[in-house]
Design a protein around this nucleic acid. Sequence first.
DNA 1: AAGGGTATCAACCGCTCGTAT
DNA 2: AATACGAGCGGTTGATACCCT
Length: 328
Amino acid sequence: MSSMSKSPSNTSTEEDVELRRGPWTLEEDNLLIHYIACHSEGRWNLLAKRSGLRRTGKSCRLRWLNYLKPDVKRGNLTPQEQLLILELHSKWGNRWSKIAQHLPGRTDNEIKNYWRTRVQKQARHLKIDSNSTAFQDMIRCYWMPRLYQKIERSSPSSTMSSQNSVMPQPLDYASQHYSESLPPPLPPPPPPPQPQVFAQTIHSLDHHEKTSSSNNCSTSPSSSSLESMNTSQVLPQVSEYPTNPCDAITNYKDHNRFLKDGSCVDNSSYSYDMESFSLASILPTGDLDNLVGDGNLAESNWVDNDLGDSLWMMDELWQFRKFQERGN
DNA sequence: AAGGGTATCAACCGCTCGTAT
DNA sequence: AATACGAGCGGTTGATACCCT
């Protein structure tokens, strides 16, 4: 970057030495790592002065927390992590640092970037407000099931299945969800005695929210409706937040028992409340037609071909539309 | 191969909050 | 109680990698 010449606005004496900006060099990284190894992190302004780095304390802190800290996890977010982000964002909104606390090794910056580049991108393509309830519903009804399906497929005897044993069988969620003739069903309920960590998440987070300051960032109707429920009757008591994304995934199915209107699906008759969720009702008039076209799905180049990101599949939208038409 | 458009992500900025004085 | 300062947060920017034509 070439933008490291701008000097700070202060006119102080010894700090008059021009501060560096822009990308960090290897030497700077080493300097910072070495200093923190000797003095531990914190007191960033002091660190910036004493370490010999011509950087602001802020910059040092950011570089350390987002990049140099040993436990920072690099690489793509796993489906489990993505699912957890979606869930927690529906709960908390843009509380990135709070969300990041539940994804070990991931930084708020990374999660924020993920949301803006992947999630909001889809909202833009669909021409709906990413903060809208409609988009939240789409995430719940399309994106999260797809992630869940992907997780299932990628690890039939996966960690979560083996760890928690709540999966009665490999679950082709989407194929059920978008089946030809039936309203998309939810997966069968897990065996009662199994740990239900995701449900624990919801319960414990709700409890936490009630005790913390008001937060109107959450736009998910299920969030507010959950809070109005006596969750202790439905969910097991918990003591801690999940720290492992897999934990959240494990009980995603349980979470989906809670419908948007706050009702809880009875275990004996899982049926998704698709009547209250209509893609056609979400999209502006004509947009669905524009997206789907005349069945010419190849034109829908707004969908990534990489399965890792192609969570909004045109064929599913198309099937969903057919389902809608039959219902009307 | 080149140019343009898009996506990604590291880094910066302004603001708020908490704490010390 | 008022003020100063450091830390942290969320929004935004800009460089660059990548893709497409």
